[in-house]
Design a binder for these strands. Sequence first.
DNA 1: CAATCAACCTGGGTGC
DNA 2: TGCACCCAGGTTGATT
Length: 282
Amino acid sequence: MPELPEVETIVSGLAPYLNGHQLVQVELWEPHCIGEPSAAEFCRRLIGQRIVELARRGKHIIFRLASGESLLIHLAMTGQLILRPADHPPDPFLRASFNLDSGQQLRFADGRGFGVLRLVDEERLGTLLGRLGPEPLSAQFTVASLATALKDRAAKIKPLLLDQSFVAGLGNIYADEVLFCAKINPQRRARTLVPGEVQRLYYAIREVLSASIRNRGTTFDTYRDGFGRPGSHQAYLRVYQRAGAPCYDCGVPLRRLRLGGRGTYFCPRCQPEASTTASEPR
DNA sequence: CAATCAACCTGGGTGC
DNA sequence: TGCACCCAGGTTGATT
């Protein structure tokens, strides 16, 4: 669940409580979600380290450590990262805990267990993050760069938006919301988008993500911020999980289809299959 | 390059 | 109640 707005909310909330603090104790309950070293080795290498900076890239949470290494956490679908008083009652599905010199405990919990923790050096960090596409809210991401990226791609636009090497941070909820906002059918081929559509897509990406960040993310089920609180953007979703319900703009029942194995929600009237100016080959 | 599928896990909802 | 089945916010690798 955690997509860019949720990870951003977690990171910006926790940063003041983590930056400059030292890890005095580390425990892991689920060795297989670690990456390279054994659980014991993983903990040993982390204990005593000081967190220099908490950062985000795409959906990745990055703990930059004083040693030059980084702890990378990906929450996948059900991961949570919550700061608790050290004596707080146990959380379900706890996979790792990090005791800080402030007396607080950072807890990583994950029901489905798809989340990943990694301890990496600078080179490996660069390799992993280098595979990601542009940050959609950064100055590097422009209408022109998006147009260039779309130009030669035959793929359908929805799966392309989910591709983290195309643009970093969009997931299934926001991809659908963005395409509705831009009035583009999720099955449109990327290279068939005309300039006006590319521009709408660009501003839809920025607007949808920014709005969700202002609302501290979307909580359907397991998402919580860094302090265990739900977000509120679920009240503002226009299409996600609303199949059969009327479109807020035109009243037509919204539809659901499967694209790239993912549930996809859209309005058949507001997001028609072909634009009036571009046609699909074949 | 594009598309599909399976895999990693657990839990909730639905329909029989 | 039980059970089978489908669904779920993500990512990766194999296959065609």
